[in-house]
Design a protein around this nucleic acid. Structure first.
Length: 886
DNA sequence: CCACTCACG
DNA sequence: ACGTACGTGAGTGGT
């Protein structure tokens, strides 16, 4: 097999990488303020091509400077270009370091461009029988394509490429690689700033070269060309065309002083890479490297191994301590316990024996109200310790929670990444210590992970004060102290309590659904005339749109869309469509809910979800393993799943209360809109009163169901950050009509109009938006040049304060709920939170009082300029809930 | 590991 | 001109 050579156009890829990452440039700055986005992008590209082409030899060519033989023959060559931004030029030395450490040669040659070096080497490589790939961002290099040399041109970012072979060139550009030079000669190149022939663009140039075969051949026969303005131009500007041809031609014989023999690629120097990644703060690349390379240089915090003998040293600690129980997996309900660290600065104690936590000495210390605990992820610690029968309280500082409040993006459950984000380097990622996937394990040498734990404890302590200071500066102390920190304990309680599931209900459903799926499957195969995988959108697309020739309504990036909306439109066309819709619905219920929930029922016959408190960008919770916030309710078929959710005690009931139209009420409050506020105060159905206003109905006139539906959609649209395009799509009207709806809406609710304008302005000025409790979301894309990114940020600016303040509201209610239930001596337990709804289980006898207490707590959680409305329901299962009448 | 689809608020 | 409604998680197929 022939040897493989990789040639990279260094300058071109650097430019591509820099501009591809330009939107997020702020994120790529190292601890010294050095920009690193281009080096980062270059590295991504490099990994990708090394993996794809597995070269035996490699070279990255750079331009030597601005002056080349081309500028000597044509003054304006590459003239008019903006100066390279300093944010990019400062990165060139580092990309060279990266390449040196990666074991890849670099080369540059005075008076020549990188292209010429590449062209020359590629020629030599062709002669020597190599298979060559050239990677560039510049399509001009496709003139170098041969049977042996492929040119990969980056598109959309830096890791996607389009590979030009001779056949692909003909197909795509209509000319051969050599002809491509002549095309360029005629059409010119605006970025390299040479003109070509007047009035000749790409289309004409390609046609001419295809017709005559080459520039030379064309000029030989130009006399036979029939008279035209174009002919005149070609004749008058022959000299220019010839000159452009020279400019466009990449040299194949540059006087280079290296040869193929110098380019052998044998792999990277990992030590040098580690050093460079550290310098550039490339955490993700660091992680990919062999852990042993890294651990040798990791910081080490001194610690003492904790045993029964020195327990007293810890037990006597006063004031504040750091505690961390190390879990091997994310699911703390069942994760393996690795060990723990406890102590104070310079006095860290580590042990693998978690049963020490159950000794009176430590158990008392951890529950001692006078000794404050600093931790990482309080909720995880509370739940995991509870498995040992140990209580931890009071928690003062939670590094994860504080970090998330300061910036919702700094929320990794890996302590090292969070510490990094706050410029603390003294701890490495869990992945480096424990590995991941199938290789996840506790290291054989205990000192490895014990040092890691000591490092973690030191990090928690070191970041405590700075993060508190930042919370203070952001006016977020109350959010932290009064909401999120106490909430973590409330959530821990809910998760530990769990919700009872009647497994037999699910297994009965499973059998029925299996039969139905089989029937549908048979019927679908019959209609299709063959068997295929109905679950595969790809195979389904072939059946529907190629075999059955149904009209294509919408396409996805990869093929035909078969989403519900599309199938619904196709339903009248063929009976198979309805069957597929039914199949999809049943299959979803079967796999995600019936089988999915059966899988996670534990020995106590309950399901214990985990709420992620530091994940969403808005302040909402999310729920995982399983997600109990998306149990079906909209359609009867799926809704039946809720029959399996039952009380855990005899004579108890499921009780649920939800906030009615909470987001619109918050909008009425934050916007101060008088009309909207008075609509809520009147107590009328809000979508109906909105319809009244935007359709200008007279007092006696009735709101039709369609008006209400459209008004409701507009209300939703406003909450989501309205756009005519989005609204039009949603309610199936033209963008023009949608625009009118929105205009009418804003005329009727001028306060809302001003809110949308103001909040976007605020986002632009301060870079973030806030909820009522000063929860923050940064929106860097608000300044993006890209329309899509910027529009998205603007909609987010409108939506986040609303969705986020609603999240604030229910969180406050949840904290007060625990206290209220206790104060009233109720046995009722809060089980679930579903964004605007709280689900409880309670003795049936408590329901009347519970209803009053819950409604009172939820109603008064926050004082808004509009009333809040709470609706309560009760029943024997989550399915059978019935409204409670006054 | 990503794309698609679909469940919820 | 650009071309999306906001926020989530899980299962499946396909590379």
């Amino acid at each position: 097999m022939s040897k493989r050579l990789l040639l990279i156009d260094g300058n071109s890829i650097m430019f591509r990488a820099f501009f591809a990452m330009h939107q997020q440039m702020d994120r790529f700055v190292n601890h010294d303020g050095l920009h690193t986005a281009a080096v980062y992008g270059f590295k991504l590209m490099l990994d990708s091509v090394l993996k794809t082409y597995k070269p035996d030899a490699a070279l990255v060519a750079f331009d030597a400077g601005k002056k080349t033989f081309r500028t000597a023959m044509y003054d304006d060559y590459k003239g008019g270009r903006d100066k390279t931004p300093s944010e990019l030029s400062e990165q060139f030395p580092y990309v060279r370091q990266l390449l040196a450490a990666s074991g890849i040669q670099t080369y540059e040659l005075p008076n020549y461009e990188a292209d010429d070096i590449i062209g020359t080497i590629a020629s030599q490589a062709d002669a020597a029988g190599y298979t060559t790939t050239i990677v560039t961002g510049d399509r001009d290099l496709t003139q170098l394509v041969t049977e042996q040399t492929t040119v990969a041109v980056t598109k959309r970012g830096v890791t996607n490429t389009e590979e030009y072979t001779p056949a692909y060139m003909l197909e795509k550009l209509g000319v051969t690689p050599t002809q491509y030079i002549d095309v360029k000669a005629l059409m010119g190149d605006s970025s390299d700033n040479y003109p070509g022939v007047t009035k000749i663009g790409e289309k004409t140039a390609v046609n001419l070269i295809r017709e005559y075969g080459s520039l030379d051949a064309m000029y030989e026969q130009i006399d036979q060309m029939k008279p035209s303005k174009r002919k005149e131009n070609l004749q008058n500007e022959e000299k220019i065309a010839r000159q452009c041809q020279t400019l466009a031609t990449i040299k194949r014989d540059a006087p280079i002083t290296i040869g193929l023999a110098d380019l052998a690629y044998t792999g990277a120097d990992e030590g040098a890479l580690v050093e460079l990644y550290r310098e550039l703060d490339f955490q993700s690349f660091l992680k990919q490297l062999n852990p042993t390379t890294i651990t040798a240089e990791t910081p080490t915090t001194a610690y003492t191994e904790l045993t029964a003998a020195n327990l007293a040293d810890v037990a006597n600690m006063t004031g504040s301590i750091v505690f961390h129980l190390e879990l091997l997996q994310a699911n703390y309900h069942e994760a393996d316990l690795v060990g723990f660290v406890i102590g104070q600065p310079d006095h860290w104690y580590v042990s693998a024996d978690v049963s020490l936590l159950q000794t009176p000495a430590l158990k008392t210390l951890l529950a001692n109200p006078d000794v404050k605990k600093d931790v990482f992820n309080a909720k995880a610690q509370i739940v995991a310790l509870n498995r040992l029968g140990v209580t931890i309280t009071p928690i003062a500082f939670d590094l994860l929670l504080a970090s998330y409040l300061l910036d919702t993006n700094e929320n990794s459950d890996d302590l090292a990444l969070v510490a990094q984000a706050h410029d603390y380097q003294g701890v490495v990622s869990d992945e480096i210590i424990y590995g991941k996937g199938a290789k996840l394990a506790i290291p054989e040498t205990p000192a490895t992970w014990m040092t890691h734990l000591a490092n973690k404890a030191a990090a928690i302590h070191a970041l405590r004060q700075p993060l508190f200071d930042e919370l203070q500066a952001n006016d977020q102390v109350a959010l932290y102290t009064d909401i999120e920190r106490p909430l973590s304990r409330v959530l821990a309680e809910m998760e530990m309590t769990g919700i009872r599931i009647e497994a037999t209900t699910l297994t009965t459903m499973q059998a029925e659904l299996t039969t139905r799926l089989a029937e549908l499957e048979t019927a679908i195969y019959e209609d299709a005339g063959e068997e295929f995988n109905i679950n595969s959108p790809k195979q389904l697309g072939v059946i529907l749109f190629e075999k059955l020739k149904l009209p294509v309504i919408k396409k996805t990036k990869t093929g035909y869309s078969t989403a519900v909306g599309v199938l619904e439109k196709l339903r009248p066309e063929a009976p198979i469509v309805d069957k597929i819709l039914q199949y999809r619905q049943v299959a979803k219920i079967q796999s995600t809910y019936v089988a999915g929930l059966l899988k996670v029922i534990r020995d106590d016959h309950k399901i214990h979800t985990r709420y992620l408190q530091t994940l969403t960008q808005t302040g909402r919770l999310s729920s995982v393993e399983p997600n109990l916030q998306n149990i079906p309710t909209r359609f009867e078929e799926g809704r039946k799943i809720r029959q399996a959710f039952v009380p855990s005690e005899p004579d108890w009931v499921i009780f649920s209360s939800d906030y009615s139209q909470v987001e619109l009420r918050i909008l009425a409050h934050v916007s101060g809109d008088q009309n909207m506020q008075s609509d809520f105060k009147s107590g009328e159905d809000i979508h109906a009163s909105t319809a009244r206003r935007i359709f200008h109905l007279l007092p006696g006139e009735e709101v039709t169901p369609n008006m209400r539906r459209q008004a409701k959609a507009v209300n939703f649209g406003i909450v989501y950050g309205i756009s005519d395009y989005g609204l039009a799509q949603n309610i199936n009207v033209t963008p023009k009509q949608a625009k009118e709806f929105i205009q009418n809406y804003f005329d009727e609710f001028p306060g809302v109009y001003h809110y949308t304008k103001d909040i976007v302005k605020i986002a632009r000025e301060q870079g973030y938006v806030e909820t009522l409790t000063h929860r923050r979301r940064y929106l860097p894309d608000i300044h993006a040049k890209n329309f899509n990114l910027r529009s998205f940020a603007e909609r987010t600016a409108m939506n986040t304060p609303i969705q986020g303040s609603a999240a604030d509201l229910i969180k406050i209610a949840m904290i007060k709920m625990g206290q209220a239930l206790q104060a009233h001596g109720l046995q009722a337990r809060m089980l679930l939170q579903i964004h605007d709804e709280l689900v409880f289980e309670a003795p049936a006898s408590e329901v009347p009082e519970l209803r009053r207490v819950v409604a009172e707590v939820m109603d008064s959680a926050m004082q808004l300029d509009v009333p809040l409305k709470v609706e309560s329901k009760v029943g024997p299962t989550w399915y059978d809930l019935k409204p409670i009448e006054d």
